[in-house]
């Protein structure tokens, strides 16, 4: 999902750079305050770990192979603000030393993979983990969080490409989201298996690593999450929402005095009658919701498959 240079126009590059600089600065401040000095080298080592882990290949169907992206995994292992710093570090090094992802697009890449993917992954992991207890819950939550983080980051990326006028939204969204719904399955499975392997060898790492007071972590997650959602809304809203047209039409018909509540209720109905514009949007939303439900079901089924009896059953393979 590394956007190369030349794909984003100046306004998108500027907007994403501002957003990701703000997010990274906040995450750095939070990490400095919440992390004990002992843990500071862990950031650099985790970034190196992520880079090395991305080189381990997994066989996928038809002779192809995939690898871990790891935003959700690192967020689950280290907590939200540390994960933002780690992912940004990896992306900066990939950009400047390996020419992977553009320099002007660095802001967009840090925004998509560093902010959106980590925060979506962390949020989904924490919520889904509460639904099922024990190791099995952790594995299921990690698999689902890995999938969600890949898909949400790809939607944000599609929004930026459309905002730049490079690829029209009607092509960018289905292409990016569709491909990443498949890639996300691999990402979720790998992340869950890695989490399982860590929980079998060093379960204490899962308990202790997200250090700092939990209220502080929740606050930094909320602030960073708001920033990421604001950005996604900025990039995606002009295209994704079929309602503004309907809203305008209804407001025009009802006259200038129409209150906000009226049009917002009638607008969807209005849109159902317009076949050209609204039905693809509704169909996309329905497909997205269905895909999410299926992914969650798969994640739960997968956790039952690999974790028998809820406790550690097999020793690690190494």
């Amino acid at each position: 999902m590394h956007i190369p240079d030349g794909f984003l126009d100046a306004k998108t590059a500027l907007a994403t750079t501002v957003l990701s600089t703000a997010g990274l600065a906040y995450a750095l401040r939070e990490v400095r305050n919440e992390l004990p000095p002992r843990r500071i080298p862990l950031l650099g080592l985790s970034a190196a770990f992520l880079f090395a882990a991305q080189m381990v290949n997994f066989p996928v169907a038809g002779g192809t192979s995939g690898h871990l992206v790891g935003a959700a995994l690192v967020a689950a292992l280290l907590g939200p603000s540390a994960a933002v710093v780690v992912l940004a570090t990896v992306l900066i090094v990939q950009c400047f030393l390996f020419a992977d992802g553009g320099i002007l697009a660095l802001g967009a890449n840090v925004f998509n993979m560093g902010l959106v993917a980590t925060l979506a992954g962390f949020g989904v992991y924490r919520v889904a983990q509460r639904l099922i207890p024990g190791t099995r819950g952790r594995v299921a939550a990690m698999a689902f969080a890995g999938w969600c983080s890949a898909v949400i980051a790809s939607v944000s990326c599609a929004g930026q490409l459309a905002w730049s006028g490079t690829v029209p939204w009607s092509v960018a969204l289905p292409a990016m989201a569709g491909v990443h719904m498949l890639i996300g399955v691999g990402e979720g499975l790998i992340s869950a298996l890695v989490l399982l392997a860590v929980s079998r060898t060093r379960p204490d790492l899962l308990e202790s690593i997200p250090t700092g007071q939990s209220t502080r972590r929740v606050r930094s997650f909320v602030v960073l999450g708001l920033l990421a959602s604001l950005g996604v809304a900025l990039f995606v809203a002009p295209f994704a929402c079929p309602w503004p047209d309907g809203l305008e039409a209804v407001a025009g018909r009802l006259g200038f005095g129409a209150r906000a509540i009226g049009p917002s209720i009638t607008a969807p109905l209005e849109n159902y009658r317009v076949p050209g514009l609204s039905s693809p949007g509704v169909a996309t939303a329905a497909a997205g919701a269905l895909g999410t439900l299926v992914a969650f079901g798969l994640a739960v089924g997968f956790s039952r498959l690999v974790v028998r009896g809820g406790g550690p059953s097999k020793s690690s393979h190494i």
Partner: peptide, 23 residues
């Protein structure tokens, strides 16, 4: 898949143990 995942998991464990020594 299981073995590659345990390689990555073990890599994380080793990285965090190394972080302590580095500190």
């Amino acid at each position: 898949w299981l073995t590659a995942a345990s390689v990555v998991g073990q890599l994380f464990v080793r990285a965090s143990e190394r972080a302590e020594r580095v500190y």
